[in-house]
């Protein structure tokens, strides 16, 4: 079995699946209600009852991490979708009209967006509209657009010189039809791998934005904000900082391993580990 030879793929898939499952289950059930304050039980260390302990309001950390997974995954997933839905068609169009003014405009706009790290976009949006999870989605999503546009343009340019594309042109097919029928399916692997990478980067970015207060706002639990709140209590309650951090690390690690594994699976020749 080819699948069984890919340890990274399995390990990554299982790690990532744990957090996706946690997020999904949290809609139906969490060990404790994360909106209910329980001051008498505040700042407890991990125990049989509260597996990861409680925070300064007595809320169950384990439950909060389950609900926080929702925010992280939702923000990153939507941001990647924005990147793919807007970026891939732009890249395909630029490649199909290579060296035309259209190509030039698309590539220069990409350069422009690349000059704005996601954090700057988030800062600008927040300065005007105030902080929210939507800001994080838009900021990370905009940042993803040139990533996918460049990737698909480069991949499509390579494919356009291949002889099977010439054969399709001789068969009278239009550039857009060739892009959909021949180019897109042949770069799907690349897009899936990059999508996984951007997904994991999105989770890191979302955590960073909520940590500095530009992302999800209370009462929506998020891993980044849990870390921000834990910071002042790190001397006497370090477990508050540890568990949300581990949640981020393991989710990102799982997605990265999964992406690496996918790459090896699709193309064993380049199993070099990812950048």
């Amino acid at each position: 079995m080819r699948w069984l030879q890919h340890r990274n793929l399995w390990l990554g898939a299982m790690l990532a699946a744990v957090f996706v499952a946690a997020a999904l289950i949290s809609f139906l059930w969490t060990p404790f209600d994360v909106t209910k304050l329980n001051i008498p039980e505040k700042l407890q260390t991990p125990s049989m009852e509260h597996w990861f302990g409680t925070d300064h309001f007595g809320r169950d950390i384990f439950s909060m991490i389950m609900v926080g997974a929702r925010t992280s995954i939702a923000v990153a997933l939507v941001a990647v979708s924005i990147g793919i839905v807007a970026g891939v068609p732009l890249g395909l169009a630029a490649a199909a009209r290579h060296d035309s003014p259209l190509d030039e405009i698309i590539m220069r706009s990409n350069d422009l967006v690349f000059a704005f790290p996601a954090l700057l976009i988030a800062i600008m949006i927040t300065a005007i509209f105030g902080p929210s999870a939507i800001n994080a989605i838009i900021a990370i999503g905009i940042f993803n657009i040139p990533v996918f546009a460049r990737l698909s343009r480069a991949a499509a340019l390579g494919l356009w010189t291949r002889e099977f594309i010439l054969a399709a042109r001789v068969a009278g097919k239009s550039a857009s039809r060739i892009s959909v029928e021949h180019i897109l399916p042949n770069m799907l692997n690349l897009l899936i791998v990059q999508g996984t990478i951007q997904f994991s980067l999105g989770i890191l970015a979302e955590a960073g934005l909520s940590y500095v207060g530009l992302g999800a706002q209370p009462p929506i639990p998020s891993w980044g904000r849990m870390l921000a709140e834990s910071q002042t209590m790190i001397t006497f309650a370090p477990h508050l900082a540890l568990f949300p951090g581990f949640a981020i690390v393991f989710t990102v690690l799982g997605l990265n391993l999964f992406g690496d594994g996918l790459r090896d699976y699709f193309d064993p020749k380049i199993s070099r580990g990812r950048h």
């Binding site: 960073g208 790190i234 900082a241």
Partner: peptide, 22 residues
Amino acid sequence: TQLGVAIPNFWFAMLLVLVFAI
């Protein structure tokens, strides 16, 4: 490096503070 890529830098910073400063 696989682990390093997955660690958010601000959390890593908090851990450094915990160990080396506190």
